[in-house]
Design a protein around this nucleic acid. Sequence first.
DNA 1: TAAAAGTCGTGATATTTTTCACAATTAATT
DNA 2: AATTAATTGTGAAAAATATCACGACTTTTA
Lengths: 211, 211
Amino acid sequence: MQQNKIPQATAKRLPLYYRFLNNLNQQGKKRVSSKELSEAVKVDSATIRRDFSYFGALGKKGYGYNVEYLLGFFRSTLDHHEVTEVALIGAGNLGTAFLKYSFLKNNNIRISKAFDADERKVGSDIDGVPIYHIDDLSEQLDGIRVAILTVPSTEAEVITENLVKEGINGILNFTPARITVPNHVRVHHIDLAVELQALVYFLKHYPLDKE
Amino acid sequence: MQQNKIPQATAKRLPLYYRFLNNLNQQGKKRVSSKELSEAVKVDSATIRRDFSYFGALGKKGYGYNVEYLLGFFRSTLDHHEVTEVALIGAGNLGTAFLKYSFLKNNNIRISKAFDADERKVGSDIDGVPIYHIDDLSEQLDGIRVAILTVPSTEAEVITENLVKEGINGILNFTPARITVPNHVRVHHIDLAVELQALVYFLKHYPLDKE
DNA sequence: TAAAAGTCGTGATATTTTTCACAATTAATT
DNA sequence: AATTAATTGTGAAAAATATCACGACTTTTA
Ligand SMILES: NC(=O)c1ccc[n+]([C@@H]2O[C@H](COP(=O)([O-])OP(=O)(O)OC[C@H]3O[C@@H](n4cnc5c(N)ncnc54)[C@H](O)[C@@H]3O)[C@@H](O)[C@H]2O)c1
Ligand SMILES: NC(=O)c1ccc[n+]([C@@H]2O[C@H](COP(=O)([O-])OP(=O)(O)OC[C@H]3O[C@@H](n4cnc5c(N)ncnc54)[C@H](O)[C@@H]3O)[C@@H](O)[C@H]2O)c1
């Protein structure tokens, strides 16, 4: 669908641009240059211009970008007029933090259902999000295509199989397990322990001054 | 310090390799090939061999890698014999989840102190980690060089300044704010809302089958 | 109105990362 | 002992990403 010419690296930065444009818009700013944007999001200004250029000529030479126009453009590009429903699997420590956070305001994403195996949690809700039993995926998941996975890593593989069976095609996996999926399913890993360890590694092994 | 020849992309994968080698070792496995490892961590086997090769010839042709040897090697490379102490700033929803998680077992990282501005939290502890007042950074932080930032985004910039002043040189920033730091300080961003939105974007705009 | 300053869009170039593909070597098998 | 199968380490190529640098155009200033 659409031009899949857009590099992945660019696609990953789009939500970031979008959020900052939103901020600017709320501050009443009318125009912005790639240089200003660069300082705010810490991405080289040439990279920003290049990123934008994949979508056509969105700016004006000598002027910069019109915030409102750009925002409108991104809104439709990011499908931001419609809310994306997401399921959360595993309402534990991490899962609960997500349930309490509103992705709706800035991101038009709503965690609308949670699933867990713990009988004490099933039937309750967290900040208005109902928790269902994991065995009821089939009945309750209907239509939802994206899942956040915050279960113990030992459960990840089996649960993933079920999620895929029920039509999920996007998984944000916080589990350390590297899950296997058919190739119509997209998995993004966020491995917090790895991130932390990588940071520590960089601190110890890379020159301190100058990047 | 050390050969900073190692590409960043490689460095980021090291903790991942390390964890899987640990698993294998615990399962009693004596040898492993780049092909097996590849299937487990979902990284191309040539990439794995290349990554390892930056540290010298760690394997044996026709045999593969000796798990124990490789593990020992990574242990010292990742400084895994000593525990890295980390401070958590902002014991809210996300912060609490981290405090309840043990990074010690697999990663030799310990969140040893937490800081918050909420008087009701200060003085208590979460899973044994004491919560101090953010104003007491100076007295309490001593020696800690790495911080996890999980405060409201509006506070991020000011707090960062203080952290830097107190000698922090690595920050894992979960705030949507893009913080500004002197260039001897390293910041890694984990922007959960962006990750989620990027996943949704990929699902809608990239071909479903094949990659 | 003319000159100066600012800024985009992009060809060209540089850098980084990934992958291919194979000689060299080891282990396993017959 | 000889043959076959497995697997590394790496030169070379490819792919992806980032940056430079400048012509073209717009806005601002004088
Ligand atoms: N909390 C952190 O800071 C942190 C850090 C790094 C990685 N992780 C990873 O994130 C995942 C979640 O961590 P957590 O701290 O929230 O763990 P947790 O134990 O607090 O939560 C796990 C939740 O999953 C539920 N669960 C167990 N089996 C299930 C099943 N079969 N189906 C549905 N739900 C099931 C449990 O009832 C629990 O509510 C883990 O894989 C962990 O390794 C967490
Ligand atoms: N929870 C999530 O799922 C989620 C998702 C995406 C992004 N984030 C981001 O992570 C950050 C934390 O989120 P959260 O949900 O844990 O928020 P939270 O409000 O639950 O926690 C913030 C904590 O910071 C403390 N705090 C406030 N001001 C402080 C100060 N000056 N010094 C020290 N502590 C201070 C508060 O007392 C509170 O305990 C936010 O920036 C949020 O945008 C969270």
